[in-house]
Design a protein around this nucleic acid. Structure first.
Lengths: 333, 333
DNA sequence: ACTCGGCCTGAAATCGATTTCTCACCCGGC
DNA sequence: GCCGGGTGAGAAATCGATTTCAGGCCGAGT
């Protein structure tokens, strides 16, 4: 591997001159030419480790996500990656598995590695701690989930509004007994979506007591959705529709519904978050589409501004969801 | 951010001693204790950039995969990640998008970043070029797909055997007109799977000419599978079963089949590679299960041996697939 | 008592780039 | 002819760790 000194020697100049050629310093055209030729023949490309050490800034950003198997997060990752690539940043993808300890280990690595910045979809609203990074001046952007205590930029979706819209849509279709399966009590996403669901039902004069009795908290995973749905179906008077707060739980719920022989349009299903290949499974499944790719792109762009030194006040960008209804003519009747 | 000298000063020792405390040199217990206390109070963790520069080896490995949205590769990535974490390596995940240029850019980054090694699922059998890495002594393990010219370790699945088994399974069930949708002509995976399919059919005395007429090459993506399946269904005498060479094309093919009103068990479907939530879609879909996680784990383990300096001759590890039939009593009839 | 090892320790070199500092040179103006 | 300003280039410092080298101390053996 050729070093900058090798190139300097080959071109008959000093290492400083070589560095200037590649970093926009003032060098006479003739010398610059010689340096470039020498670099080409030697196959030189600057050692990024040495550069990082000297300049005190890396060309790597970290992306912490809770579940790499969830298509929502892979789409988000692609958004981050595309935005990062535009300024020659590489992305280290870290899968925290919804595990706060694993997440903290990755945070430590990011700090020791002196990464340029972090995009974090927090594993927990309450227990994720981003203060260490903030303290050491490493820019952080929270995405999708905002850890409670952190003073960081954030890019979110309008969970409450999206959920309210979606639930209202079910009501318009004529469903009357609309249950809800949401995520863990701690998570901001699950609380906001639940709040939206509640708002829509209250607006339709459904009593709070009924709402509480038909709300289930699960874990944002397939199995959790399955179990919660089974519980709801076992009620004395089961619901005629359900609002489900994420895509994986929807998959589980669909299994429970199939086992119970229940299907649209007699039973209304609304998923918050796109279910992969949902059109194959249930053509009549409505979904709230989340702009996962844009979320990642916006977060990475914001992060790059901070890395470049922007001192603007903290921002929170909120992206809107969009409802994608199917089979608009059908209803419960 | 505290440096090693800060710790040294605080503990009243030299930086060398601090380094030895953390890297297993011989230091008296009393001093080591003082150093550890100083490090704790200062929140010291060694700067990995400086360490990499000095030791000439990084604690980061690169993972190049062609499609992060494919569950097969995310499972593989988790295998790599878990294995890497056991020896404190971090994984940089690079999504090449089946694009050889993008892949080459990532390879260059990996070299400039002086990563410890690479696990590569090549974007192309013919055009992916791993020689630059090999030349500079960076260990590389190919996984799932083996680039033609490269002299590297590899971890593969037994594509041909798996495909042959799967096709034989369809024959046993009584299907007689078994078509095939495979991947691009260049890819090793698609060729091997096609070969297995052919072998099984030849074994059942199906003429070569018929086989050729019922084989379609597509692009390993959803749309490709859809188009190819439509073509096959439009034949004068359409097939009564199909062997599909990867999971995403199966999704497309299923859509084509649904549109044509064709379904199991009258029509036999066999997917090479697990289709996510297939049980929801079509309970009677048989799949060849690919050990994606183990593939990644084995590759990362092999890579770590090389990084540690193993000079064993090049290895190729082949993992077996397993057939997961459903609805075993049903057949075409 | 003297020497020879062995074991710790700190000083200093090192990794490969960037960047500051300094100097030499050249040009133009007075 | 001399001086000032501007420009380009090299020498050397620097980033933060690891590692070599050399020396100091202590204990054991003769």
């Amino acid at each position: 591997m050729a070093t900058i000194s090798d190139v300097a020697r080959a071109a008959g100049v000093s290492p400083a001159t070589v560095s200037r050629v590649f970093n926009g310093g003032r060098v006479t055209a003739e010398r610059a030419q010689r340096v470039r030729e020498a670099a080409d023949t030697l196959g030189f490309s600057p050692n990024r480790v040495a550069r990082s050490l000297r300049t005190q800034r890396a060309s790597v950003i970290g992306l912490l996500i809770p579940d790499i198997a969830n298509p929502f997060f892979t789409a988000l990752a692609r958004g981050v990656e595309d935005a990062a690539q535009r300024t020659n940043l590489s992305v280290v993808l870290c899968n925290t598995d919804e595990d706060v300890d694993k997440e903290r280990r990755y945070l430590d690595v990011a700090l020791a590695e002196h990464m340029a910045g972090l995009v974090v979809a927090a594993a927990s609203r309450r227990r994720t701690d981003l203060s260490a990074a903030a303290q050491r001046g490493m820019p952080v952007v929270a995405v999708d989930r905002r850890p409670r205590a952190a003073e960081v930029d954030a890019v979110m979706v309008d969970n409450q509004h999206g959920a309210e819209d979606a639930t209202a849509h079910l009501i318009e279709r004529g469903y009357r007994r609309i249950a809800c399966v949401t995520g863990p009590a701690g998570a901001s996403t699950s609380e906001d979506r639940l709040a939206g669901y509640r708002a829509a039902l209250r607006d339709a004069d459904v009593p709070d007591e009924w709402i509480r009795a038909h709300t289930r908290h699960a874990d944002f995973r397939v199995e959790g959705g399955y179990t919660a749905m089974k519980e709801l179906l076992a009620l004395d008077v089961p619901p005629d529709a359900v609002f489900i707060a994420n895509n994986l739980m929807t998959v589980g719920a669909l299994r429970a519904l199939r086992e119970a022989g229940v299907a649209p349009p007699g039973f209304g299903i609304l998923s918050f978050g796109d279910v992969p290949w949902a059109s194959l499974v249930h053509p009549s499944l409505s979904t709230v589409h989340l702009p996962a790719y844009d979320l990642g792109e916006a977060a990475a762009t914001l992060l790059q501004e901070r890395i470049a030194g922007s001192a603007k006040p903290l921002q929170t960008v909120v992206l809107r969801t969009s409802l994608e209804p199917r089979n608009s003519t059908a209803g419960p009747g």
